[in-house]
Design a protein around this nucleic acid. Sequence first.
RNA 1: GUGGACGUAGCUCAGCUGGUAGAGCUCAGGAUUGUGACUCCUGCGGUCGAGGGUUCGAAUCCCUUCGUCCACCCCA
Length: 428
Amino acid sequence: MAKTVQSIRGMHDILPPETAAWQFVEGRLRELMEAYAYHEIRMPLVEQTGLFARSIGEVTDIVEKEMYTFEDRNGDSLSLRPEGTASCVRAGVEHGILHNQQQRLWYMGPMFRHERPQKGRYRQFHQIGVEAFGMTGPDVDAEIILMAARLWQRLGLADEVRLEINTLGSAEARAVYRRHLVDYFAYHESQLDDESRERLHRNPMRILDSKNPDMQDLVEGAPRLADHLDTESREHFDGLLALLDALGVDYRVNHRLVRGLDYYNRTVFEWVTDHLGAQGTVCAGGRYDGLVRQLGGRATPAAGFAIGLERLISLVAEHGFDTPAGEPHCYLGLLGEEAVASGHRLAEGLRDALPGLRLQVNCGGGGMKAQMKRADKSGAEFALILGADEVREGRVTLKPLRGGEQVNLARDAVANELATRLQLESKA
RNA sequence: GUGGACGUAGCUCAGCUGGUAGAGCUCAGGAUUGUGACUCCUGCGGUCGAGGGUUCGAAUCCCUUCGUCCACCCCA
């Protein structure tokens, strides 16, 4: 045990009982994307480091201390992607699919951040991301929020999450506001804690996020971004809230909601829950109208969000709908050497006839008792038994494992019997 | 990066102020020539996370290190 190799810290294997839940949730997500006519895009896991520095922001925690960065053999600095938006925009610009047109895209896959692991936070984690390009108005903001809302509905989580929303205004308005904020906090610098003092000039808006109880009064008294909004952003936000009202989406405006990535402007939102410990954000997103241009494309408005799959799946496991476990319908036991070839032939025939059938065939021999034990443990509803007697007589024994009488069937009647009992589509 | 708790069989855990490692589950076999889930019996399975120190003697005490969990920070 001493010399075994372990997985990298914060990077976890996902094992069979759990992969079933992942597949279920991923399936629902794909259906959701199709329901809104979004198209899948797949990007590399590795990009030039500069892409993330330029988009996420040089002074963010992600870029400063959380990226997996290494040197390629030719000396280029590469990084494992810490999030998907930057890569998606890069790919879109590189292939011209954002130029002068609308695009609705999604992707799903692993992301990497070198943080201290914690509940709901891992160094390799998975996100599904949605990005909509080329639409200026609040209607698309509302659309992506509706997508998320529908997902909670479909997974039985509607009562477990709530929407918080805010607007950051335009980059220009934010710059003005930022100056007011720095002035305010600088005036009260003696009341700032060490962290906030550190943030004062580097990233002052993050001070508003402080959870330090001693600073709540100071933060409450700070100038509000809402009072410094440019007219267009104000109207955009009002328009979005009106849409959400009209569509029956509940939300809470949270003036202190500031996203950690630099590229956001105007709308930002988070879906949060109380059931995930300290990492309560399941879904986060917003508008990033400047990013496409910043990464070398023609100015293109954009909005999107990302959902953390580990967080989503743990929420579903504890508070959402049951996910199917993927057990076989049927376990075929084979007694004796003479039954092996015959049994596999039978199994192949059943799989031909019943494409939806999940059939596990006994391998590795064993007596009746051992095979019945395996059948039970597999979770199958039925055992099929093929021994020397059955082979000789052209028959198969079907034994219900969860109650009911065992029956002896003609070999060519098995498919129909299973189709009926399991309510499967038959091809024959 | 900081702090707290914890690492003993494949899994869940017990093991007192130091005396040389146990249970349950799982798995294999049997009681039951070809019938699982209940019961009983037998068996397989451990350099006690790793390395060092103290000691006649360390799973137990000390140091270091790796890892897990949780929180801070930050975020999905």
